[in-house]
């Protein structure tokens, strides 16, 4: 499979090149003009966020005033108070944190372990097993939701978090990514040295594998957290008890209860649900963006 590796190959091939020194004279002329489309796009892209803040901090009358008010108001406190009254929002927040942490931890652990083994150990069938894993990445098995739903029902998993934690715990994409990282970042001598020092299989992974993969683990973790936090389809299908709802479902519930009556309340909830990931992303901005091209395979 050449497709998933392409952008990564590009980046590695790009590194040995000297820093670019394009002739600057031609660019100087249009230097400022570039900002016109970029600023326009930036305003369009920022506006939904801005509007979210405006609505979450206003009350209905202010929003529906004519001409429309376009600046944030002071009503966030009372709006969010109604969110807490009108939906199991705090439960949902806690549930989302729990599901996201456990699911991401499992995904990162299994991906790092298997990727490290594939990269650094020899055993019969290794290459065939890895090739099979890569092939599965191109199979859209996720579209068959009815049989999966029935399997979860037969296992007694409906209305529980198991369907959100177990089936996706070992990600082919994550293993693929970790294997690449381990091949590039962990020299065989380090493993030999650890073994000579008497380190067992597990200790080699903990003291050589995990530290060597730390940058990739950080990037993969952020991606999985983003993904798990926002997951919608399966929570919607399997969770029926509102106390088990994750944030996206609780927002839907809130929208159903308040959507026609008071949109500011829905917006206040949406704002609070959105902030954690925005903050997380801003902290890990560089790691996420420099690895986003590898993350694309997730789709």
């Amino acid at each position: 499979m050449s497709v998933p590796t392409m952008p990564t190959e590009h980046r590695t091939r790009a590194t040995p090149l000297p820093p670019r020194k394009r002739p600057m004279t031609r660019h100087r002329v249009g230097g400022y003009l570039v900002h016109v489309p970029l600023l326009l796009a930036a305003v369009l892209f920022a506006f939904p966020f801005y509007w979210l803040v405006v609505m979450a901090t206003s009350d209905t009358a202010e929003i529906f005033a004519s001409p429309p008010r376009l600046v944030p108001g002071l009503r966030f406190g009372s709006n969010f108070g109604e969110v807490l009254d009108g939906s199991p929002f705090l439960y949902a927040f806690t549930n989302s944190v729990f599901v996201t942490v456990v699911a991401s931890a499992l995904q990162v652990f299994f991906a790092a372990l298997a990727g490290f083994i594939f990269a650094k150990y020899r055993f019969p069938g290794r290459d065939q097993l890895f090739a099979a894993l890569v092939v599965t990445m191109a199979l859209p098995t996720g579209v068959a939701i009815v049989p999966n739903f029935q399997i979860y029902a037969n296992l007694g998993w409906l209305n529980s978090y198991w369907p959100l934690l177990v089936p996706g715990a070992a990600s082919a994409f994550g293993i693929f990514w970790m294997r690449q990282a381990a091949t590039a970042a962990i020299p065989d001598e380090l493993l030999e040295a650890a073994r000579v020092d008497g380190a067992g299989f597990w200790r080699v992974f903990r003291h050589v594998g995990l530290p060597g993969l730390s940058a990739t683990i950080a990037a993969f973790t952020v991606f999985q957290v983003m993904w798990n936090w926002n997951e919608y389809l399966w929570p919607l299908l399997v969770l029926s008890d509102t106390d088990l709802y994750t944030l996206p479902l609780a927002l839907q519930l809130l929208k159903g209860a308040y959507g026609a009556v008071d949109y500011s309340v829905v917006m206040a909830g949406t704002l609070v649900a959105t902030i954690p990931l925005v903050v997380l992303f801003l902290i890990f901005r560089r790691t996420v963006m420099s690895n986003a091209s590898a993350g694309a395979v997730k789709g």
């Binding site: 600057m24 570039v34 930036a42 919608y232 996206p248």
Partner: peptide, 27 residues
């Protein structure tokens, strides 16, 4: 090369990616 504010633009354009579809649909 040498574009001012490239990092800010990039961050801003990427930011919607981290928001949930439900939040986007509400807005």
């Amino acid at each position: 090369p040498g574009l001012r504010g490239a990092g800010i633009y990039q961050t801003l354009f990427f930011l919607p990616q981290v928001t949930s579809v439900v939040a986007i649909a509400v807005v």
